[in-house]
Simulated assay, not measured.
Amino acid sequence: MSAFQRDDRLPRYQRLRDELAEQIAQNRWRPGEAIPTEAALASEYAISVGTVRKAIDVLVSEGVLERQQGRGTFIRRPQFQSSLFRFFRFQGLNGERLVPESRILAMETLQAPLAVSQVLSLPAGTEVIRLVRLRLLNAQPVLAEEIWLPKSRFLPLLTVNLQRQGPLLYPVYESLCGQVVARASETLTAEAVTAVHARLLQIDVGSPVVVIERLACDYAGAPLEWRRSRGHASHFRYNVEIR
């Protein structure tokens, strides 16, 4: 049963919004593609064009869709490439931004620890993939990352050499697994580094590190990835524009 048919207690536009989000998450339309016109969707779901427009308005406000004047409404592709630079300063001698090299240190499958299953909304005992990744600049470690993924949605990752896929994981998730990260929430904390992460980052135990915890979700809001990135406080910066 589709989201549009499931709960008639919700307004029709909200049910259509949920249905369209599920269809997008299931790759009925790919990022960058146009969705059908409002008239076509109204005919498909036997509802008014006004109801369709209201559902699309919600998805536009949420950043799932974007309207392009004279062209139609398209699936918006989020840009995560610059997210690191909100919190960490990785620059060359001339001030240019540098993207850290990626090195996969470990990849394993295991039953999800309780905290992981709760964050990823998985039943207890579900198998997950755990990645340990190091980010380096000029061969020096700057970030240590622990990444958790539902195994059922990312099984193809186990068949390739991720080391050869480049420094960004999200394009790999999409091309190999059909999983598109549409949004993410991040929490920022600080802690004294443990022996394990001190060894990875090549810093003294107890040194201050900044921890960015990210939960990434698909277009329907289902969790796809939980990661913790730890970087030495000397690289940390926080930049926000207040008006």
Rank of each mutant, 00 (worst) to 15 (best):
R15P: 10
R17C: 06
E19Y: 07
A25N: 08
R28Y: 08
R28N: 05
R28L: 11
R30E: 09
P31E: 04
P31F: 03
A34Q: 14
I35S: 05
T37H: 00
A39R: 13
A39Q: 11
A39T: 14
A40W: 04
A42I: 05
S43W: 05
E44I: 11
K54T: 14
A55I: 10
I56F: 05
L59C: 12
S61K: 15
G63Y: 03
L65V: 10
E66D: 00
Q68M: 11
R71G: 00
G72M: 08
F74G: 07
R77T: 13
R77V: 01
F80I: 02
Q81A: 11
R86L: 12
F87S: 09
Q91T: 15
Q91V: 12
L93I: 05
N94S: 10
G95M: 05
G95Q: 04
R97D: 06
V99M: 12
V99E: 13
E101K: 14
E101Y: 13
R103A: 12
M107H: 07
L110W: 00
A112M: 02
P113Q: 02
V116R: 08
V119G: 04
S121H: 12
S121I: 03
L122S: 04
P123N: 02
A124P: 00
I129C: 12
V132C: 02
R135I: 00
L136N: 05
L137P: 07
N138A: 15
A139Y: 04
Q140I: 13
Q140G: 01
P141F: 05
L143W: 01
E145I: 07
I147K: 01
I147P: 01
I147T: 15
